[in-house]
Amino acid sequence: MDTTELERIAREIRLRDLQAVFEAGAGHIGGEMSVIDILTALYFRVLNVWPDQPKHPDRDRFVLSKGHTACALYVTLAKRGFIPEEEISTFLQPHSRLNGHPNCNKVPGVETNTGPLGHGLPVAVGMAKAAKLSGAKFHTYVVTGDGEMQEGSNWEAIMAAAQFKLDNLTLVIDHNRFQQGAALAETNDLAPLRPKLEAFDWEVTEINGNTMSEIVPALEHRGTRPHCIVAHTNKGHGISFMQDRVDWHHKVPSKEQYEIALAELSEAL
């Protein structure tokens, strides 16, 4: 699938995500908008996955460590055929399997339960190590938030991945520069991320994480060390009044705001 087509799908996912968050009256829309291009590239171009066989042993593994952006994952999984598209309307409804954070025992395509931050990367290291031990060819991808990199468990995993020489592991840091309450720069600023990862003996690529032509080659890159993609993104990407505004971490648009956002995203289609 070419980048133009991927961009079109990403816009459709943004639109459906916006609708789902508006209808549910909850969600983490800022971080969803920032990560949707990466999810789209993964599920519609990069990952070897088979929606009819979600547990196929040779599938590539994907872990959304920033589990609070589950809605974007659900919309992507639905569009890719893992769950029915009409099920998105049940997001956060009583007994829906589409919880505020993804559940691997309920939603096909989800590999491990995330929600508390700093969990996905250690699990992904285990997945990549499992492939090394068994000789399996699958590749493991994990997406973390940049604020999430403040969790010490991530740095434990970064050390282990380098020690284990996991060239079959790709970490994407969704670097939208904002965490829940403030900018990273005002909280515990990890920027610049590149030298920190390089100091731990990872290969690092920096890209615009909302530009498909940069995302795809970075995800498809294969090297000799664990690979970190520092994806410079915009929180709320695609919706003018949300972009780079910390208050859109988990704010829900009003009816008026929803109409404006809908119009902007529809126009982009």
Binding site: E111, T112, P122, V125, G126, A128, K129, A130, A157
Partner: peptide, 8 residues
Amino acid sequence: GVGAGLAN
């Protein structure tokens, strides 16, 4: 976490 990933 690595244990969980190894099991997966």
